[in-house]
Amino acid sequence: MERKIRVLVAKPGLDGHDRGAKVVASALRDAGMEVIYTGLHQTPEVIVEAAVQEDVDVIGLSILSGAHMALFPRILELLRERGADDKLVVAGGIIPKDDIEELKRMGISEIFGPGTPTSQIVDYIKREVEARRA
């Protein structure tokens, strides 16, 4: 049997808005994935360490503080350093359009803005992970 998709839901940065992260975590869990939630206020170092230790397929980053342009690139850089840049990295939060384009260029696969149905996130992750496993 193929192993379940493992997802790390992470809250980098200092903001405490965890409604979205928790809703997404619950939806992924209900869709049959194994979900690890880091809790709030995590540094890029802690997030990448957890992703490697837990051997996840996917890292879901949620941030609403505006610090995404400082923290996301750092997370991507650390993943590369650890040879873990094969993991799918997706994100959500309050992220302006211009930043979305730049972050995608840097290696965030997809950014889900406010109002995204959780089913869309589930479908995307399933599709991408299957493609990577194939």
Partner: peptide, 10 residues
């Protein structure tokens, strides 16, 4: 260091 990227943002 924890303030990096967050200063004056929100």
């Amino acid at each position: 260091p924890r303030a990096h990227g967050e200063v004056g943002m929100c």
